[in-house]
Amino acid sequence: MTDLPAQTTRKLGLVIDLDTCVGCHACVISCKGWNTENYGAPLSDQRPYGDEPMGTFLNRIHSYEVQPDTGPAQTIHFPKSCLHCENAPCVTVCPTGASYKRSEDGIVLVNEDHCIGCGLCAWACPYGARELDQAEGVMKKCTLCVDRIYNENLPEEDREPACVRTCPAGARHFGDFADPNSAVSQLVEKRGGIDLMPELGTAPVNKYLPPRAKDRWDDESLLAPLLTPVAKEPSGFLSWLDKALDKLPGGSA
């Protein structure tokens, strides 16, 4: 049902901290594992042991290099899954109603039983967040682990997305952006979280925390006093030692 809800009760999504992501792909594989075994059709792999293996993944890690005007280039590992856009173009283009945005929490899902695999929603998504499963012929996408976050068969603390639970660096955070006091809202506020391709008006729910400023070597003059020599020669150093030891608690002076 491809009308977008006028508004959703909650806005669940992820915050991804680009200052912390080390590019380990842990979230990629735990996502693959969970979603292969759970929601809908398994994420299939074509030529898994052959040339050009190609499988369905709902989350991928890119690596970018940014060359600032001065200073060395920076490497940034960049995870990307569905951003659960408020203004999701993937939903409105869907001819079957298989794609929809949940009114209760804003999660964008595909009803795999209705999907005809036309691929149009993937065309409409600017971010490459949808993948047509080659074995099943239906559209797959990040479900925000809708089968975990409310799952009463899981302990309370595990009711979070698989990728968030597994991220060793803690670079992924899950929560409700409709609540300004939620941890994710606070993080976005504090660290200046941003949207990807804001100019397209998709209004992503997921936010990215930009990397902190890098390679800012402190001004030498500030540091110089810290390195004021106590001595230039070994003998001078030893007499300094002697005096300094005297001053320590329990020293002889």
């Binding site: 075994e37 398994p42 792999d45 074509q46 898994p48 042991y49 052959g50």
Partner: peptide, 9 residues
Amino acid sequence: TGPTTLKWK
């Protein structure tokens, strides 16, 4: 050699 498609569930 391994299979040509995997649908592991």
